[in-house]
Design a protein around this nucleic acid. Structure first.
Lengths: 114, 114
DNA sequence: CCGCCATTTGGCTAAACTGCCAAGTGTGCA
DNA sequence: TGCACACTTGGCAGTTTAGCCAAATGGCGG
Protein backbone atom coordinates (compact mmCIF):
# COMPACT_ATOMS: atom_id res chain seq x y z
CA UNK A 1 0.00 0.00 0.00
CA UNK A 2 2.14 2.84 -1.26
CA UNK A 3 0.73 6.33 -0.91
CA UNK A 4 1.09 9.87 0.36
CA UNK A 5 1.72 9.76 4.14
CA UNK A 6 -0.86 12.47 4.88
CA UNK A 7 -3.63 10.64 3.05
CA UNK A 8 -2.50 7.39 4.63
CA UNK A 9 -2.58 8.89 8.12
CA UNK A 10 -6.09 10.24 7.57
CA UNK A 11 -7.34 6.84 6.51
CA UNK A 12 -5.61 5.19 9.48
CA UNK A 13 -7.31 7.56 11.91
CA UNK A 14 -10.65 7.07 10.21
CA UNK A 15 -10.18 3.30 10.27
CA UNK A 16 -9.57 3.43 14.00
CA UNK A 17 -12.95 5.07 14.49
CA UNK A 18 -14.69 2.44 12.38
CA UNK A 19 -12.82 -0.35 14.13
CA UNK A 20 -14.01 1.03 17.45
CA UNK A 21 -17.60 0.93 16.25
CA UNK A 22 -17.25 -2.52 14.67
CA UNK A 23 -18.56 -4.56 17.56
CA UNK A 24 -22.16 -5.23 18.63
CA UNK A 25 -21.51 -4.54 22.32
CA UNK A 26 -19.77 -1.28 21.57
CA UNK A 27 -22.55 -0.22 19.21
CA UNK A 28 -25.05 -1.00 21.91
CA UNK A 29 -23.19 1.16 24.39
CA UNK A 30 -22.85 4.02 21.94
CA UNK A 31 -26.56 3.77 21.25
CA UNK A 32 -27.21 4.06 24.97
CA UNK A 33 -24.84 6.99 25.32
CA UNK A 34 -26.82 8.86 22.66
CA UNK A 35 -29.51 9.32 25.30
CA UNK A 36 -27.31 10.39 28.16
CA UNK A 37 -24.06 9.71 30.00
CA UNK A 38 -23.70 6.40 31.82
CA UNK A 39 -21.35 4.92 34.41
CA UNK A 40 -19.47 1.69 33.72
CA UNK A 41 -21.75 -0.27 36.03
CA UNK A 42 -24.81 0.76 34.01
CA UNK A 43 -23.20 -0.16 30.71
CA UNK A 44 -22.03 -3.46 32.17
CA UNK A 45 -25.60 -4.29 33.14
CA UNK A 46 -26.72 -3.27 29.65
CA UNK A 47 -24.42 -5.53 27.64
CA UNK A 48 -24.30 -8.34 30.19
CA UNK A 49 -20.57 -9.10 29.95
CA UNK A 50 -17.88 -9.06 32.59
CA UNK A 51 -17.04 -5.56 33.77
CA UNK A 52 -13.42 -5.99 32.72
CA UNK A 53 -14.60 -6.75 29.20
CA UNK A 54 -16.85 -3.70 29.14
CA UNK A 55 -14.05 -1.55 30.47
CA UNK A 56 -11.80 -2.65 27.63
CA UNK A 57 -14.53 -1.94 25.09
CA UNK A 58 -14.90 1.55 26.52
CA UNK A 59 -11.16 2.01 26.33
CA UNK A 60 -11.27 1.24 22.61
CA UNK A 61 -14.05 3.77 22.06
CA UNK A 62 -12.21 6.37 24.10
CA UNK A 63 -8.90 5.92 22.27
CA UNK A 64 -10.70 6.35 18.96
CA UNK A 65 -12.27 9.58 20.21
CA UNK A 66 -15.84 8.30 20.09
CA UNK A 67 -16.51 8.73 23.81
CA UNK A 68 -15.00 10.64 26.72
CA UNK A 69 -14.83 9.71 30.39
CA UNK A 70 -14.89 11.63 33.64
CA UNK A 71 -14.33 10.39 37.15
CA UNK A 72 -16.83 11.44 39.82
CA UNK A 73 -15.97 9.91 43.13
CA UNK A 74 -15.54 6.19 42.81
CA UNK A 75 -17.49 5.97 39.56
CA UNK A 76 -16.44 6.84 36.04
CA UNK A 77 -18.96 8.33 33.67
CA UNK A 78 -18.82 8.02 29.91
CA UNK A 79 -20.45 10.34 27.41
CA UNK A 80 -20.69 10.36 23.64
CA UNK A 81 -18.10 12.64 22.11
CA UNK A 82 -18.59 12.00 18.39
CA UNK A 83 -22.20 13.07 18.12
CA UNK A 84 -22.56 12.55 14.38
CA UNK A 85 -22.65 8.77 14.79
CA UNK A 86 -26.35 9.13 15.56
CA UNK A 87 -27.17 10.43 12.11
CA UNK A 88 -25.00 7.80 10.48
CA UNK A 89 -26.66 4.99 12.44
CA UNK A 90 -30.03 6.16 11.17
CA UNK A 91 -28.76 6.25 7.60
CA UNK A 92 -27.21 2.80 7.83
CA UNK A 93 -30.41 1.37 9.26
CA UNK A 94 -32.59 2.84 6.55
CA UNK A 95 -30.14 1.78 3.84
CA UNK A 96 -30.00 -1.80 5.15
CA UNK A 97 -33.78 -1.82 5.31
CA UNK A 98 -34.02 -0.59 1.74
CA UNK A 99 -31.61 -3.27 0.59
CA UNK A 100 -33.59 -5.97 2.40
CA UNK A 101 -36.75 -4.75 0.69
CA UNK A 102 -35.09 -4.79 -2.74
CA UNK A 103 -33.85 -8.30 -2.08
CA UNK A 104 -37.36 -9.40 -1.11
CA UNK A 105 -38.85 -7.89 -4.27
CA UNK A 106 -36.26 -9.62 -6.42
CA UNK A 107 -36.92 -13.03 -4.91
CA UNK A 108 -40.69 -12.67 -5.36
CA UNK A 109 -40.59 -11.04 -8.77
CA UNK A 110 -41.81 -14.24 -10.49
CA UNK A 111 -44.59 -15.15 -8.04
CA UNK A 112 -46.05 -11.65 -8.01
CA UNK A 113 -45.53 -10.17 -11.48
CA UNK A 114 -45.86 -6.40 -11.38
CA UNK B 1 -24.93 -10.45 26.12
CA UNK B 2 -28.61 -11.06 26.86
CA UNK B 3 -31.09 -8.89 25.01
CA UNK B 4 -34.10 -8.65 22.73
CA UNK B 5 -33.36 -10.56 19.49
CA UNK B 6 -34.61 -7.73 17.26
CA UNK B 7 -32.36 -5.17 18.86
CA UNK B 8 -29.51 -7.65 18.82
CA UNK B 9 -30.00 -8.33 15.11
CA UNK B 10 -30.02 -4.62 14.32
CA UNK B 11 -26.72 -4.15 16.11
CA UNK B 12 -25.22 -7.18 14.38
CA UNK B 13 -26.13 -5.80 10.95
CA UNK B 14 -24.82 -2.38 11.87
CA UNK B 15 -21.61 -3.91 13.21
CA UNK B 16 -21.09 -5.69 9.91
CA UNK B 17 -21.16 -2.36 8.10
CA UNK B 18 -18.65 -0.83 10.50
CA UNK B 19 -16.43 -3.91 10.30
CA UNK B 20 -16.44 -3.58 6.54
CA UNK B 21 -15.26 0.03 6.82
CA UNK B 22 -12.71 -0.73 9.53
CA UNK B 23 -9.68 -1.12 7.27
CA UNK B 24 -7.48 1.55 5.70
CA UNK B 25 -7.45 -0.09 2.26
CA UNK B 26 -11.20 -0.46 2.21
CA UNK B 27 -11.68 3.13 3.35
CA UNK B 28 -9.37 4.26 0.59
CA UNK B 29 -11.42 2.36 -1.99
CA UNK B 30 -14.70 3.71 -0.64
CA UNK B 31 -13.24 7.20 -0.80
CA UNK B 32 -12.35 6.61 -4.42
CA UNK B 33 -15.79 5.23 -5.22
CA UNK B 34 -17.34 8.44 -3.89
CA UNK B 35 -16.11 10.09 -7.06
CA UNK B 36 -17.21 7.47 -9.53
CA UNK B 37 -17.38 3.74 -10.21
CA UNK B 38 -14.13 1.83 -10.67
CA UNK B 39 -13.08 -1.59 -11.96
CA UNK B 40 -11.07 -3.98 -9.78
CA UNK B 41 -7.91 -3.28 -11.73
CA UNK B 42 -8.15 0.45 -10.99
CA UNK B 43 -8.71 -0.15 -7.29
CA UNK B 44 -5.85 -2.65 -7.23
CA UNK B 45 -3.53 0.00 -8.64
CA UNK B 46 -4.85 2.48 -6.09
CA UNK B 47 -4.20 0.46 -2.93
CA UNK B 48 -1.13 -1.35 -4.29
CA UNK B 49 -1.89 -4.81 -2.91
CA UNK B 50 -2.31 -8.11 -4.68
CA UNK B 51 -5.47 -8.24 -6.77
CA UNK B 52 -6.70 -11.25 -4.82
CA UNK B 53 -6.43 -9.24 -1.65
CA UNK B 54 -8.32 -6.32 -3.16
CA UNK B 55 -10.99 -8.67 -4.45
CA UNK B 56 -11.52 -10.04 -0.96
CA UNK B 57 -11.74 -6.55 0.46
CA UNK B 58 -14.38 -5.68 -2.11
CA UNK B 59 -16.26 -8.83 -1.24
CA UNK B 60 -16.41 -7.70 2.39
CA UNK B 61 -17.76 -4.29 1.38
CA UNK B 62 -20.30 -5.86 -0.95
CA UNK B 63 -21.58 -8.34 1.65
CA UNK B 64 -22.07 -5.49 4.11
CA UNK B 65 -24.08 -3.58 1.50
CA UNK B 66 -21.63 -0.72 1.21
CA UNK B 67 -20.86 -1.23 -2.48
CA UNK B 68 -22.45 -3.00 -5.43
CA UNK B 69 -20.79 -4.67 -8.42
CA UNK B 70 -21.71 -5.14 -12.05
CA UNK B 71 -19.99 -7.23 -14.68
CA UNK B 72 -19.33 -5.57 -18.05
CA UNK B 73 -17.49 -7.93 -20.33
CA UNK B 74 -14.40 -9.25 -18.68
CA UNK B 75 -14.27 -6.48 -16.09
CA UNK B 76 -16.27 -5.99 -12.95
CA UNK B 77 -17.21 -2.48 -11.90
CA UNK B 78 -17.87 -1.43 -8.34
CA UNK B 79 -19.94 1.54 -7.23
CA UNK B 80 -20.77 3.06 -3.86
CA UNK B 81 -24.16 1.90 -2.63
CA UNK B 82 -24.27 3.41 0.85
CA UNK B 83 -23.96 7.05 -0.11
CA UNK B 84 -24.26 8.46 3.39
CA UNK B 85 -20.75 7.33 4.29
CA UNK B 86 -19.49 10.47 2.58
CA UNK B 87 -21.18 12.77 5.08
CA UNK B 88 -20.01 10.62 7.97
CA UNK B 89 -16.41 10.63 6.75
CA UNK B 90 -16.49 14.42 6.70
CA UNK B 91 -17.89 14.53 10.21
CA UNK B 92 -15.33 12.07 11.56
CA UNK B 93 -12.51 14.05 9.97
CA UNK B 94 -13.64 17.35 11.44
CA UNK B 95 -14.25 15.77 14.83
CA UNK B 96 -10.79 14.17 14.89
CA UNK B 97 -9.29 17.48 13.86
CA UNK B 98 -11.15 19.28 16.63
CA UNK B 99 -9.91 16.75 19.16
CA UNK B 100 -6.34 17.13 17.95
CA UNK B 101 -6.63 20.90 18.35
CA UNK B 102 -8.05 20.56 21.88
CA UNK B 103 -5.21 18.23 22.76
CA UNK B 104 -2.68 20.72 21.42
CA UNK B 105 -4.23 23.56 23.41
CA UNK B 106 -4.15 21.47 26.58
CA UNK B 107 -0.49 20.60 26.21
CA UNK B 108 0.48 24.23 25.61
CA UNK B 109 -1.84 25.76 28.18
CA UNK B 110 1.07 26.54 30.54
CA UNK B 111 3.48 27.94 27.95
CA UNK B 112 0.89 30.23 26.38
CA UNK B 113 -1.41 31.41 29.20
CA UNK B 114 -4.65 32.79 27.78
C1' DC C 1 -12.85 -24.99 -28.89
C1' DC C 2 -8.27 -22.55 -27.33
C1' DG C 3 -5.69 -19.16 -25.18
C1' DC C 4 -5.68 -14.87 -22.86
C1' DC C 5 -7.34 -11.62 -19.76
C1' DA C 6 -9.90 -9.95 -15.46
C1' DT C 7 -11.46 -11.50 -11.35
C1' DT C 8 -12.62 -14.77 -7.66
C1' DT C 9 -11.76 -18.61 -4.49
C1' DG C 10 -8.97 -21.95 -1.66
C1' DG C 11 -5.44 -22.57 1.44
C1' DC C 12 -2.07 -21.37 4.55
C1' DT C 13 0.50 -18.62 8.20
C1' DA C 14 1.05 -14.45 10.94
C1' DA C 15 -1.21 -10.95 13.31
C1' DA C 16 -5.09 -8.82 15.67
C1' DC C 17 -9.28 -9.18 18.50
C1' DT C 18 -12.38 -11.18 22.43
C1' DG C 19 -13.58 -12.39 26.81
C1' DC C 20 -12.74 -14.37 31.06
C1' DC C 21 -10.12 -14.56 35.56
C1' DA C 22 -6.91 -12.60 38.60
C1' DA C 23 -4.39 -8.86 40.25
C1' DG C 24 -3.69 -3.83 40.59
C1' DT C 25 -5.29 1.16 41.21
C1' DG C 26 -8.03 4.87 42.99
C1' DT C 27 -11.91 6.66 46.15
C1' DG C 28 -14.70 7.18 50.18
C1' DC C 29 -15.80 5.91 54.74
C1' DA C 30 -15.22 4.07 59.42
C1' DT D 1 -5.10 2.80 58.71
C1' DG D 2 -8.01 -0.58 56.91
C1' DC D 3 -11.72 -2.14 54.22
C1' DA D 4 -15.23 -2.14 50.62
C1' DC D 5 -16.43 -0.55 46.24
C1' DA D 6 -15.85 0.90 41.14
C1' DC D 7 -13.04 0.32 37.70
C1' DT D 8 -8.71 -0.81 34.92
C1' DT D 9 -4.87 -3.68 33.51
C1' DG D 10 -2.22 -8.10 32.72
C1' DG D 11 -2.30 -12.35 30.90
C1' DC D 12 -3.91 -16.23 28.56
C1' DA D 13 -6.73 -19.40 25.13
C1' DG D 14 -9.89 -19.42 21.40
C1' DT D 15 -11.53 -17.10 17.30
C1' DT D 16 -11.33 -14.01 13.49
C1' DT D 17 -8.88 -11.39 10.01
C1' DA D 18 -5.09 -10.09 6.46
C1' DG D 19 -2.37 -10.98 2.64
C1' DC D 20 0.22 -13.76 -0.30
C1' DC D 21 0.47 -17.66 -3.80
C1' DA D 22 -1.71 -20.99 -6.55
C1' DA D 23 -5.65 -22.73 -8.72
C1' DA D 24 -10.35 -22.12 -10.58
C1' DT D 25 -13.98 -19.35 -12.97
C1' DG D 26 -16.08 -16.32 -16.52
C1' DG D 27 -15.86 -13.76 -20.91
C1' DC D 28 -13.86 -12.53 -25.40
C1' DG D 29 -11.28 -12.93 -29.74
C1' DG D 30 -9.65 -15.90 -32.73
Amino acid sequence: MLMDPRTLARHEARAQVFKALAHPSRLLMVDELMQSERCVCELTALVGSDMSTVSKHLSVLKTAGVVADERRGAQIWYRLRMKCVARFFACVDSELQRQAREQFDLVHADTVPK
